[in-house]
Simulated assay, not measured.
Amino acid sequence: MQIHKIINTLVTGLLLSLAVASVYAAGPGVNVTANAPSLTEQAAVILDDSVITAKVKGALIVDPEVAAMKINVVTKRGVVVLTGDVPDNNKGDYLIKLVATIEGVKVVQNQLHVKPG
């Protein structure tokens, strides 16, 4: 369990650093309109999504039911998209339920493919 916390902390830190760096990389040449979200708001969304992705990946790594599967995780505004191959529908359903329990996840989109093993 301790390794789980360490992995989550490391992944979260890395993703937070990358998200902040990407916002600053946009530089002062970014045009902002009255209705567009501020850079701070954009950074907050990126950070939130990065943290959710890190939590999901951490949960998948430590779960013995799915640790061996190669599942891709993409998060945008709290919507988590899962792609990859699962051995059967039951494993796919298990993954979706597991991810749906993670704090910050609003919706789980299933783009998993059943590929018997």
Score class of each variant (00 low, 15 high):
M1D: 12
Q2D: 14
K5F: 01
I6G: 06
I6M: 11
I7T: 12
N8V: 00
T9G: 12
L10H: 02
T12M: 06
L14A: 09
L15R: 05
L16Y: 08
S17V: 08
L18C: 07
L18R: 15
A19H: 10
V20Y: 03
S22A: 05
Y24V: 12
Y24K: 13
A25M: 05
P28F: 00
V30L: 04
V30R: 03
V32G: 00
V32M: 10
N35Q: 12
P37V: 04
P37H: 01
L39C: 06
L39W: 02
T40Q: 09
A43C: 12
A44R: 08
V45R: 10
L47D: 05
I52S: 06
I52R: 03
K55A: 09
K57D: 03
K57G: 11
K57T: 13
G58I: 00
G58F: 04
A59I: 00
I61M: 08
E65F: 03
V66K: 08
A67C: 14
M69T: 04
M69I: 03
K70T: 04
K70H: 08
I71P: 01
I71A: 06
V73Y: 07
V74Q: 03
K76V: 14
K76Y: 13
K76C: 10
R77D: 00
V80E: 04
V81P: 01
L82Y: 08
T83F: 10
T83H: 02
D85R: 15
V86L: 03
V86Y: 01
P87H: 01
N90P: 05
K91H: 11
K91W: 03
D93R: 14
D93A: 15
D93G: 13
Y94D: 12
K97N: 10
K97H: 08
K97P: 14
K97L: 02
V99S: 06
T101G: 04
I102W: 12
E103V: 07
E103Y: 10
Q109E: 07
N110H: 06
Q111D: 02
L112N: 00
P116Y: 11
